[in-house]
Computed example of a mutant assay.
Amino acid sequence: MGGHLALDAGGVLAAVIVAAALVFVAMTVRRWLFVRGGGAVECSLRVLPAGAEPGPWRLGIGRYKGDVLHWHRVFGFRRRPRQVIHRRGLVVSNRRRPEPGEADGLLPDVSVIEVRDGDLTVELAMGASALTGFLAWLEAAPPGFPVDLHPPDQP
């Protein structure tokens, strides 16, 4: 009787380890598929609801596709983006360094920018090269695209 129980527990443990390994492999392949086409950067995002506390920071990958930035969570399985930020009418209203309490949940040496796309207001936390690429993408908008870049208060 005890031998069968040990065999059952060992089988369950092996199944859990295999399932965890498959999840890890699936997320690694998903990330590779996003990054391999180019135009992808690591950036964290949090939504700023009107009149409410900001949501939590989520680590993700931003991918430029023409006039939109698709943002995907790193730890997820969806192929569709969680947020879509349109270049047309985009307003970058603030740039700052992370506050001490929020810096723990972000990648090192990032800047935080506040972005408004219609009714959607989010903050993006990006490293220096990703931020330069984002601002270049905004400034490269075709003529007639209303893009509003407010000068940053802090570098």
Rank of each mutant, 00 (worst) to 15 (best):
residue 100 P to A: 08
residue 123 E to N: 02
residue 102 E to W: 10
residue 46 R to T: 03
residue 43 C to I: 02
residue 119 D to S: 14
residue 111 S to G: 05
residue 105 G to Y: 00
residue 115 V to D: 01
residue 5 L to Y: 06
residue 154 Q to D: 08
residue 81 P to R: 04
residue 24 F to N: 09
residue 139 E to K: 14
residue 30 R to W: 12
residue 85 I to R: 02
residue 123 E to V: 01
residue 100 P to Y: 03
residue 83 Q to R: 12
residue 103 A to M: 00
residue 87 R to K: 13
residue 135 L to F: 15
residue 7 L to E: 13
residue 85 I to G: 00
residue 108 P to D: 10
residue 92 V to S: 04
residue 3 G to M: 09
residue 104 D to F: 01
residue 16 V to S: 05
residue 45 L to H: 04
residue 16 V to E: 11
residue 148 D to I: 14
residue 1 M to Q: 11
residue 153 D to F: 02
residue 73 R to I: 03
residue 53 E to A: 15
residue 51 G to N: 13
residue 19 A to D: 06
residue 106 L to W: 08
residue 29 V to G: 06
residue 128 A to N: 05
residue 8 D to E: 11
residue 109 D to E: 15
residue 83 Q to I: 08
residue 74 V to A: 11
residue 1 M to L: 10
residue 107 L to R: 04
residue 129 S to K: 11
residue 110 V to W: 00
residue 66 G to E: 10
residue 99 E to V: 06
residue 110 V to R: 00
residue 111 S to W: 03
residue 27 M to F: 05
residue 82 R to L: 07
residue 7 L to D: 12
residue 23 V to D: 07
residue 151 P to M: 12
residue 20 A to Q: 09
residue 67 D to S: 15
residue 93 S to L: 04
residue 15 A to G: 14
residue 88 R to E: 08
residue 124 L to K: 01
residue 78 R to S: 13
residue 88 R to V: 07
residue 134 F to C: 00
residue 72 H to I: 02
residue 26 A to R: 12
residue 52 A to I: 01
residue 124 L to T: 03
residue 140 A to T: 15
residue 72 H to L: 09
residue 103 A to E: 05
residue 16 V to N: 09
residue 70 H to K: 06
residue 69 L to I: 04
residue 71 W to T: 01
residue 83 Q to T: 11
residue 55 G to M: 13
residue 38 G to S: 10
residue 17 I to Q: 09
residue 4 H to S: 13
residue 100 P to D: 06
residue 42 E to I: 03
residue 80 R to L: 07
residue 130 A to K: 00
residue 32 W to I: 10
residue 77 F to Y: 14
residue 55 G to V: 01
residue 148 D to C: 14
residue 117 D to H: 06
residue 22 L to E: 06
residue 36 R to Y: 14
residue 46 R to P: 00
residue 25 V to C: 08
residue 104 D to S: 12
residue 53 E to P: 00
residue 99 E to C: 04
residue 50 A to R: 15
residue 80 R to G: 03
residue 50 A to V: 15
residue 40 A to Y: 00
residue 138 L to F: 10
residue 99 E to S: 13
residue 149 L to K: 04
residue 31 R to A: 10
residue 154 Q to L: 02
residue 69 L to F: 04
residue 59 L to K: 00
residue 140 A to M: 13
residue 91 V to L: 07
residue 39 G to H: 01
residue 74 V to K: 14
residue 84 V to C: 04
residue 46 R to C: 04
residue 88 R to Q: 08
residue 89 G to E: 06
residue 142 P to K: 14
residue 28 T to L: 13
residue 1 M to C: 11
residue 147 V to F: 04
residue 35 V to Q: 12
residue 90 L to F: 08
residue 136 A to Y: 11
residue 135 L to V: 15
residue 127 G to Y: 03
residue 59 L to N: 02
residue 49 P to S: 11
